[in-house]
Design a protein around this nucleic acid. Structure first.
Lengths: 93, 93
DNA sequence: TAAAGTAGTTTATTTTTTAAACCAAATTTT
DNA sequence: AAAATTTGGTTTAAAAAATAAACTACTTTA
């Protein structure tokens, strides 16, 4: 009847991060912060969870002498997002 | 960019309950338990939350000497479900 | 009448979320 | 050139949510 929904994507902020990355493919911390309107702490925490799950990869580097965190969606992340969308459909006929 | 998602519906079990009631309009406790494959405790807790929010109305009665809990979706519940679906779309283009 | 089943509710543990505090380095102000 | 502020985050800790397990109350069966 109802499909299991990936709990990692059943979260507004993590879904927004993934949704943005599905299109943009990569984004730095501040861009994600602007796009999702999240607080830095919450964003940092949710990025870590997506990274641990292997849905995104995170590169920590520097730009103009400031730390720069770049997030990229992985193939696994794309698959999880697509599956989530498909599973979600079972809840709306 | 991304719409706020009703936290009450951003829960697998509550969404399943509401999804079922969107079609069936009403269901008793055991039917919901079967349809959603939830444990009784979890179902009881989530029904209470949906009731408190006014998304469903709950009638406690008896049938064949056993307690019978009937859940019905309200107009507010229908609106919330429709709005949730609409808002969710912003995450999938 | 004791055991088992039905229909739930309550309790309590675990997980999640999220705001607030913190850190290190860079920049600006005085 | 200190002191204060800003940037780009991370860590912590308190609050909220999810859920399994225990419990209640009544009924049926053996």
């Amino acid at each position: 009847m109802f499909k299991e929904l990936d709990p990692l994507l059943l979260s507004q902020l993590r879904l927004a991060i993934m949704s943005y990355l599905m299109v943009a493919r990569e984004a730095d911390f501040n861009l994600l912060k602007e796009q999702t309107e999240a607080t830095a702490g919450n964003l940092s925490a949710q990025i870590s969870k997506l990274q641990e799950a292997g849905y995104i990869e995170v590169e920590k580097t520097y730009r103009n002498n400031y730390p720069l965190t770049i997030c990229r969606i992985t193939e696994k992340g794309v698959e999880a997002f697509d599956a989530f969308y498909k599973d979600l459909k079972s809840y709306f006929e």
